[in-house]
Simulated assay, not measured.
Amino acid sequence: MLVITRKKGESLLIGEDIEIKIVKVEDGSVKIGIEAPKDKVILRKEVYENVKQENSEAIISADEILKLFK
């Protein structure tokens, strides 16, 4: 893991086409801005993990339903 220190208004690049900019630092939280191509999906990790869990549960439910038809 790369750990980097940035101040308000500073940014970092990921590759040549993704820029992460520090927009605001206040009361222990940081607001960031992300500029990236439209084809890149950007999700908060907790949202990604919830969707992943729900998809896993849906697959299990679908398998159980299919067993009922056999």
Rank of each mutant, 00 (worst) to 15 (best):
residue 34 I to M: 02
residue 45 K to R: 12
residue 55 N to C: 01
residue 48 Y to Q: 04
residue 51 V to G: 05
residue 56 S to R: 14
residue 39 D to N: 09
residue 50 N to A: 15
residue 53 Q to M: 05
residue 40 K to G: 01
residue 45 K to I: 08
residue 35 E to T: 13
residue 29 S to G: 03
residue 30 V to S: 11
residue 40 K to P: 00
residue 29 S to M: 07
residue 50 N to T: 13
residue 56 S to I: 10
residue 48 Y to E: 12
residue 50 N to E: 15
residue 46 E to D: 15
residue 55 N to S: 07
residue 45 K to F: 03
residue 53 Q to G: 01
residue 43 L to N: 08
residue 51 V to K: 02
residue 50 N to F: 09
residue 56 S to K: 14
residue 33 G to N: 02
residue 48 Y to M: 08
residue 41 V to C: 00
residue 49 E to R: 08
residue 39 D to F: 06
residue 29 S to E: 14
residue 36 A to V: 09
residue 42 I to D: 03
residue 51 V to F: 03
residue 27 D to C: 00
residue 49 E to F: 02
residue 34 I to F: 05
residue 57 E to R: 14
residue 28 G to N: 10
residue 37 P to E: 06
residue 35 E to V: 10
residue 53 Q to F: 07
residue 45 K to Y: 05
residue 46 E to P: 00
residue 41 V to W: 02
residue 49 E to I: 09
residue 36 A to R: 09
residue 50 N to R: 13
residue 51 V to Q: 01
residue 40 K to W: 06
residue 39 D to V: 02
residue 40 K to I: 15
residue 50 N to S: 13
residue 56 S to N: 14
residue 46 E to S: 14
residue 30 V to W: 05
residue 57 E to P: 03
residue 41 V to Q: 10
residue 31 K to N: 08
residue 31 K to A: 13
residue 43 L to C: 04
residue 36 A to W: 02
residue 29 S to Q: 11
residue 48 Y to N: 08
residue 57 E to G: 07
residue 36 A to Y: 08
residue 34 I to K: 03
residue 48 Y to P: 03
residue 27 D to N: 14
residue 33 G to W: 00
residue 31 K to G: 05
residue 48 Y to W: 13
residue 47 V to W: 00
residue 55 N to T: 06
residue 57 E to F: 08
residue 33 G to R: 05
residue 31 K to F: 09
residue 28 G to W: 04
residue 34 I to D: 05
residue 29 S to K: 11
residue 56 S to W: 03
residue 47 V to I: 13
residue 43 L to D: 03
residue 47 V to G: 03
residue 53 Q to T: 14
residue 57 E to M: 11
residue 58 A to V: 02
residue 47 V to A: 00
residue 51 V to R: 03
residue 29 S to V: 11
residue 38 K to F: 08
residue 53 Q to L: 11
residue 30 V to H: 06
residue 47 V to T: 12
residue 30 V to P: 11
residue 32 I to V: 15
residue 39 D to T: 05
residue 36 A to S: 15
residue 27 D to K: 11
residue 47 V to K: 04
residue 35 E to Y: 01
residue 30 V to G: 09
residue 53 Q to Y: 07
residue 27 D to P: 02
residue 45 K to T: 12
residue 56 S to P: 00
residue 43 L to F: 01
residue 28 G to H: 05
residue 40 K to L: 12
residue 43 L to G: 01
residue 42 I to C: 10
residue 31 K to R: 13
residue 58 A to M: 11
residue 49 E to Q: 10
